[in-house]
Design a protein around this nucleic acid. Structure first.
Lengths: 210, 210, 210, 210
DNA sequence: CATGAATGAGCCTTCATTCAT
DNA sequence: TATGAATGAAGGCTCATTCAT
């Protein structure tokens, strides 16, 4: 009974924190990091300014938390995707499927606003980039694995190292996502991803396959 | 006599404006736009704060003017580059040379700070993006011209429209630039541009050329 | 049974109050009164912030209580000191011993920080000074008694009234203490007290004794 | 003409600065250093908050300026006093005259409020004490000179070094001043200074003079 | 045109205090 | 009693902009 009491309170507190968090996330999607004020956040969340500092030690801490949570969510999504891939399909098919999946995730799960926020934050100094780099490492690992397999099996060939190749594919994803952010809503991310990847794949396919 | 006096004054005024502009330009190269204060600009220019508002209606106007001039300067750079290309060289060579040139311009002329700021601004949409878009249109035109030529002469082939193809090349440039911004200084923009373009070019080269 | 329960609760409550008080006392010894926050006190005490207001109506009330207790403690110290003086020793010796004792108490029991705070508070008059004045009255009484004795026994002589004389000795103590506060830690309070008192004593000693 | 124009402006600015300064000085006399807010100062001065920072880089800087000016004023007063002393009078007379002068200066020139502020500030850490120490050194030099003369001429004698002796006289002045501050207005500073100094002087007078 | 003092809204953060559980 | 989330009034300071001279 005592427990339930406290859990009710904890729920209330968590709700307040979530409201602050969500309000901030929404504002970060619309304005620059330093254009978003604590006042704006708490007003949007409907709580007092003092409450903000009950739940977050500073504005910077909120940003970090936001970015970190966001990236971690992506990781989970991608990881669960990669294990769901049917075995035995060609590496180029895998990469196209992955590209399509990423496009879907960006479009439907993450959404335009959060994505733009994340990209803007990456360009902002003074933000803890560790989590972002972790994320890059995760997405990187997925691409690396597929590419390595394609190279081993002779499906792909390149004078570039597998490592360099991987970086270019990740970069392509990021470039397309960035383009989506600045052209939104006049940009069909999934379609462009697939077309673009086809060019890239053709660029590394073995001649004999052609 | 009166004329000379006034022309002297005009010169003085122009000189003051130029000093403000140059000081701002230098500071914009080092710091974020909103980190550069009017105080810093006028102090660096050695003029009074009031003078700033004689020559510029606001800080935003100065930023716009700066950005506009800047982008226009880039156009000139690219245009003069393209006409300087020796005739008769292959389209793929032209594209590689162009990629290298763009990398040089970004690295040496524009610089990391300004580029990062520009990219962030594109994501924010808070400033007048017309000039930036113009710039994109210009770079786009250059790429389009070379690609069209390559396709006509049979050096390239693609099921994609020349227009779509062009967009992907511009996108690649932008993706690489973005990558450079977030990985700076651990990213050799020129080298990565060339390697990446080679993949893309291989992806659109006609089979017979292989 | 009910009684025992409630007495258990009372014990608990007293324990909580004591912990808050002790934590505050320790912090007051280290920092200025307005530098010590409720948060710091409750954290150090290991209780919740709400508990503080169960036991103390306000921060000011705690300070008052602390100060009052503190001064009362000093009185006891001085009183027990004065009765412990061996009978028959000269008044001037008694005064020197008392000066040394006061110096020891200030240095070891009260400490620099608390003393400085007390002196500042006396100048501010923002807090209840009754207890402090009481303290002064107590110290005053001790000095007065010894001086009266010395004058009666012919050891001292002065054209000043015993009352005035007493004030000057108390003033001397206060002046030395103040000096200690502003020169800390480059001021040997005990040594200076003794030397200074020797001058004063020589100033009131009877000629025949010289 | 241009000069006069600018001097008019300069006068205006100086007037604003003076108003801020005076308002602050008055508030510092009534409240603790950290109880005096910028808001209170500018409101009392009738200027905007921004103006404060036109004239003072920070609150701390204002305090420093205040203290420094104040102390420097004292120096001048004392220095001019010492040169006005008639030659040939006894050292003890000189010291009594000096004590009386100091009492007059404190009472009439400096005044109770400013004095209390200064004493409070000395007890407050985080204030630049250099100027205060300079002041002490100045007052110290005056006392030292008179005492040295008295010792040389055999009027005074003491087992203490002239240096130590000097410190005790300065300390006495400070102790009396402090007492005045906390007992105001029930304390006749001049009378107490003279009486107290007579005791001290008797304490260091040569036996043969007695 | 040039000057720089003046303005005031706004920023992030702190902290004593309240109150529902 | 005990808890700790919630409150909101300050606090020191910044900075783009205005305006009288």
């Amino acid at each position: 009974m005592k427990k339930e009491k406290s859990s009710r309170r904890q729920e209330q507190a968590a709700e307040t924190k979530r409201r602050l968090y969500d309000s901030a996330a929404q504002l970060f999607g619309q304005y620059d990091y330093d254009e978003v004020t604590i006042d704006a956040i708490v007003q949007s969340a409907g709580v007092s300014k003092g409450s903000f500092y009950v739940h977050f030690p500073s504005k910077a801490a909120l940003i970090d938390a936001f970015l970190s949570d966001y990236i971690n969510g992506l990781d989970v999504t991608y990881q669960s995707f990669i294990v769901s891939l049917p075995p035995g399909i060609k590496s180029s098919e895998q990469l196209l499927t992955l590209a399509a999946k990423v496009a879907d995730v960006l479009t439907d799960t993450i959404g335009y606003n959060r994505m733009r926020t994340a990209y803007k934050m990456q360009l902002t100094k003074a933000v803890n980039m560790e989590t972002v780099l972790n994320y890059q490492r995760d997405l990187y690992k997925i691409f690396a694995e597929i590419l390595r397999q394609g190279l081993t099996q002779g499906e792909f060939q390149s004078e570039l190292s597998p490592d360099a190749l991987t970086r270019y594919f990740v970069m392509a994803i990021r470039g397309l996502s960035y383009e989506w952010c600045i052209r939104y809503p006049d940009f069909d991310l999934k379609k462009e991803c697939l077309e673009y990847f086809r060019i890239l794949l053709k660029g590394i396919q073995s001649s004999e396959i052609l």
